[in-house]
């Protein structure tokens, strides 16, 4: 049994798509296709970092040893994520989400123009937020460490810097969460779920970037 040559030639493409469409309609996985984007290391680092920030900002006593240790863990997490962004898989790499205000501005325009674009890695605005949060955590870790050293113990500007950066981080996290909520509504990609399962659902009719 072999496949007839000419039959495959002309509109076989659309025919094949019809096969796929019927096959999907009856399989329960109706909605859209899913793409694996976040590897387990990215997800683990993300949620652990969120946990350390939450812990140090809320329940942990400010000048306790636990606060210091959790701070160092957060610093280590960012360090590990940066290494992974250099050597890791495609979507986790710096090259997938370059810090580019120009791209972010273009993305903003696309949002207002109601384009249905979907980014597999971070979207350009989200990418800026990623770098902002990482830098804030690093700055918090460094000023926090300085407070424990003899040279900077009790120095006022260090403590003030730590406080100011903390305020900035809280604001950033709030913006991050709001951004995720808005982008989820706009693009139809369930972003929180993607950061848990690692898979982004790509709604039909949206163009992938």
């Amino acid at each position: 049994m072999s496949i007839p040559g000419p039959a495959l030639s002309r509109n076989s493409k659309s025919r094949a798509e019809a096969v796929t469409a019927v096959a999907q309609r009856t399989s329960g996985r109706i909605s859209a296709r899913e793409v694996a984007v976040w590897d387990p290391l990215v997800r683990l680092i993300h949620w652990t970092l969120a946990l350390t920030i939450l812990l140090n900002a809320t329940v942990i006593e400010d000048e306790s040893t636990a606060h210091e240790w959790i701070g160092y863990v957060a610093l280590g997490l960012v360090g590990l994520r940066v290494i992974w962004a250099l050597v890791g898989p495609t979507h986790a790499r710096f090259s997938s989400f370059p810090p580019s205000p120009a791209r972010a501005a273009r993305h903003l325009r696309a949002i207002f123009a109601k384009e249905h674009s979907v980014f597999l890695s971070h979207n350009p605005l989200g990418a800026l937020m990623v770098y902002n949060i990482w830098l804030s955590v690093i700055a918090l870790g460094v000023t926090g460490y300085m407070m424990t050293t003899l040279a900077f113990f009790g120095v006022e500007w260090v403590e003030e810097a730590h406080e100011v950066i903390f305020g900035w981080l809280v604001l950033s996290v709030a913006l991050h969460v709001a951004g995720v909520a808005l982008e989820t509504r706009r693009s139809g990609v369930k972003l929180v779920r993607a950061m848990i399962t690692g898979r982004k659902n790509i709604p039909e009719g949206s163009c992938m970037k």
Binding site: I3, P4, A7, L8, S12, R15, A16, E17, A18, V19, T20, V22, A23, T26, S27
Partner: peptide, 29 residues
Amino acid sequence: GHLADIIEGFFDEWGLTDAERDVAIMILK
């Protein structure tokens, strides 16, 4: 993608109607 092409090739060879194609795919599933 290729399996879809193969299936389509058979259907064309047999001259199935559109309704029959739908039913045939569901039988395969």
